[in-house]
């Protein structure tokens, strides 16, 4: 139970960090902490009663969740890199149709 509460705490702390984040990298890190929180809840609740065998279904859900989180994180990092690379290329704003 303590672990699942800790998971929720991680989720909430990171949620606040995402809401307030201005830098993409900070937001990406916060989102990853959030997902760790969710996974912690899933795994912790899978073994609520000491001594019993853990429920395998939440474990499988965590593995699936981790893979999804990795994919999304990789995409977010590359998007951030594109954003930075474009900053030094001022031509984007000059193309026709780019005006407001």
């Amino acid at each position: 139970m303590l672990y699942s509460l800790a998971g929720i705490a991680l989720f909430c702390i990171a949620l606040r960090a995402v809401i307030l984040a201005t830098a993409p990298l900070r937001a990406i890190l916060a989102v990853n902490v959030m997902s760790s929180g969710v996974f912690l809840v899933l795994v912790a609740l899978a073994r609520r009663t000491p001594g019993l065998v853990a429920d395998p279904v939440p474990h499988a859900m965590v593995i699936t969740g981790i893979v999804v989180a990795v994919s999304a994180t990789a995409m977010a990092i590359v998007l951030t890199q594109r954003l930075r690379a474009n900053v030094s290329a001022p031509t984007v704003e000059d193309t026709p149709g780019a005006g407001p």
């Binding site: 995402v18 993409p24 937001a27 990406i28 989102v31 999304a72 995409m75 977010a76 998007l79 951030t80 594109r82 954003l83 474009n86 900053v87 984007v92 704003e93 193309t95 780019a98």
Partner: peptide
């Protein structure tokens, strides 16, 4: 692949 589209995609993703 223009600045604003990439920024919008990142916001959408997060």
């Amino acid at each position: 692949d223009e600045q604003r589209a990439v920024a919008a995609a990142l916001r959408y993703l997060l």
